[in-house]
């Protein structure tokens, strides 16, 4: 049984002339590292927002661990941890205070909370930065703290929206290694990125979105092999989505 099923998903924003996504369908199996790729405006963030229950679909539905989420559902999908593209942390609180707060809001208390916060600080290599205010941290530390906050509730599904944007090679390496470890521990990961080499190295399966629909999905190696004159995911991506600017 798929961990996530996206069936005929469509979303049109108020006032928009065309839907941001339409007739979008894919599945993500349990324990998979699934890459959602696409040029700017392809509909990746809209898809993620619907998966996490932040947006309602105009048509179609999503099933997350058997729970259905459509335009009429009363409860949001559960079991999702979101690491948004923005640094969604309180800048004037310290890294630990932020993790404490989001942990409590996830329903953690006492010893459990302390253990989880310490573990997440360790995963993000944040121990030495725990007492620093987020505003005083470097971009890389902020990104790692942003990831750590998404891991606090130990969600069975982790959704990451471009988590390595704007960080140096060292921080990106730490993040990627951490994500691999998290995935190996059984967490299903849905990952969006514009870095094709990252997706190629991390993702067990990918879906390439363009103009609000899926234009290709499968294992990266299989998709590359299927496309003529392609030897990398970057080449495949450009071959499928074109080289002209989108926005």
């Amino acid at each position: 049984m798929a961990e996530i099923s996206v069936v005929g998903l469509e979303r049109t924003y108020p006032g928009a002339s065309r839907p941001a996504i339409k007739n979008l369908s894919f599945e993500v199996a349990r324990g998979e590292f699934f890459g959602l790729l696409g040029p700017n405006g392809a509909g990746k963030t809209t898809t993620i927002s619907i998966l996490c229950g932040l947006l309602r679909p105009t048509a179609g539905h999503v099933e997350v661990r058997g729970e259905r989420w459509d335009g009429h559902s009363r409860t949001m999908p559960r079991g999702m941890g979101l690491v948004p593209q923005d640094i969604a942390l309180y800048p004037t609180l310290t890294v630990r205070e932020n993790l404490d707060y989001f942990g409590r809001m996830s329903g953690l208390w006492g010893g459990d909370l302390r253990r989880r916060v310490d573990r997440c600080l360790h995963i993000g290599a944040l121990e030495s930065h725990a007492s620093r205010r987020v505003v005083q941290c470097s971009g890389g530390v902020k990104r790692r703290a942003n990831l750590a906050a998404g891991l606090l509730s130990e969600p069975p599904i982790l959704v990451l929206d471009e988590p390595t944007v704007g960080v140096d090679a060292q921080s990106r390496n730490v993040l990627i290694e951490n994500l691999k470890a998290i995935n190996q521990s059984g967490t299903t990961i849905v990952y969006t990125t514009h870095y094709m080499e990252e997706a190629e190295a991390l993702c067990t399966r990918i879906a390439i979105l363009d103009a609000g629909g899926v234009i290709a999905q499968g294992e990266p190696a299989e998709l590359i092999a299927r496309q003529k004159d392609c030897s990398s995911l970057v080449q495949l991506f450009l071959a499928l989505t074109g080289k002209e600017l989108r926005e």
């Binding site: 996490c52 229950g53 932040l54 949001m76 559960r78 999702m80 941890g81 979101l82 948004p84 593209q85 923005d86 640094i87 969604a88 942390l89 309180y90 800048p91 989001f102 809001m105 996830s106 906050a149 998404g150 509730s153």
Partner: peptide
Amino acid sequence: QGTLTRLRTLP
């Protein structure tokens, strides 16, 4: 900042 978005997903 996006913290409200994060909080809504907890939910």
